[in-house]
């Protein structure tokens, strides 16, 4: 069975929410990504999401933009990200998702991209600038490789559109919690709760719901899970720790502690 589906089934059995930890691959440098992934998993991450750095990340806020710049400066390429995921895979059976802007995939050739993704143990792909209207060929190829295609829904997505998106998404559905780019926000908005409820109504549990953008506190995690989400995606919170700690050992320790705090909040009472 596919790793992502298996993970969500396990979480459901244990009555837990999932923690999906995002980092930009190759930040602060390519040699550290596997180490970071391991401490995130040790801290409780149920799925690790690796962002492939792109020169023009239009869906990202300042924190991830800066991570992208650091990673590109350190020489990260698409192929190197796949090598990082192979390295993670050697020691770990955690589901691995990559996030890539579409041009990187298009340039390499969609088929080549999935070929390499499969070989390096990738379980799912998120493409923030590929709406379902443009995704037919991509979806077909991904299916042939048995890699999950994770699509996004936003507060502006209508219920009719959401029904179509459900047809395209697999693994989980990525709910964009707010109008805006990635980044830390103070509180959970009403629109987030509304979106989770609408998605619930449409999916009836057929596909797990993961909420991302702006989630950074254990309290946020509790709120979205209580309102029906199956998992949270935390990105900028982790990336900020990487940015703030020049001392790499201290960085790994801080990532572990933060992942632990978030994971603890996913255990439903």
């Amino acid at each position: 069975m596919k790793r992502i589906v298996e993970t969500f089934l396990k979480l459901r059995r244990q009555n837990e929410g999932g923690l999906i930890a995002y980092i930009t691959a190759g930040d602060p440098d390519p040699a550290y990504t596997a180490k970071i992934a391991h401490v995130l998993v040790k801290g409780g991450a149920d799925i690790v999401e690796l962002g492939i750095p792109f020169s023009d990340p239009i869906a990202d806020g300042p924190v991830i933009q800066a991570a992208t710049a650091r990673s590109l400066k350190a020489g990260t390429t698409v192929r190197k990200v796949f090598r990082m995921s192979e390295e993670i895979r050697k020691e770990n059976n955690v589901p691995l998702v990559v996030l890539s802007y579409f041009n990187l995939i298009y340039r390499m050739g969609i088929k080549n991209f999935f070929d390499l993704a499969k070989a390096s143990g990738i379980d799912g792909v998120v493409v923030p600038d590929l709406p379902i209207e443009e995704a037919d060929e991509y979806k077909k190829i991904a299916e042939a490789y048995e890699i999950d295609t994770i699509f996004l829904a936003a507060p502006s997505t209508s219920i009719e559109r959401l029904r179509n998106i459900i047809e395209y998404t697999s693994g989980f559905l990525y709910l964009v919690s707010v109008f805006g780019v990635t980044g830390i926000r103070e509180k959970i908005h009403d629109s987030t709760i509304k979106l989770i409820r609408m998605a619930h109504q449409v999916t009836c549990g057929s596909v797990p719901l993961a909420v991302g953008f702006g989630i950074s506190q254990p309290e946020h995690v509790k709120t979205v899970l209580q309102n029906g989400a199956d998992a949270v995606i935390v990105g900028s919170g982790f990336v900020k720790i990487i940015e703030a700690n020049q001392d790499r050992n201290r960085m790994l320790e801080a990532l572990y502690v933060y992942a632990r705090q978030l994971k603890t909040a996913t255990v439903k009472k």
Binding site: E133, E134, S156, F179
Partner: peptide
Amino acid sequence: GGQFVPETLMTA
């Protein structure tokens, strides 16, 4: 051409 934008903008 086409519409390669984040989902948030599709409705707009």
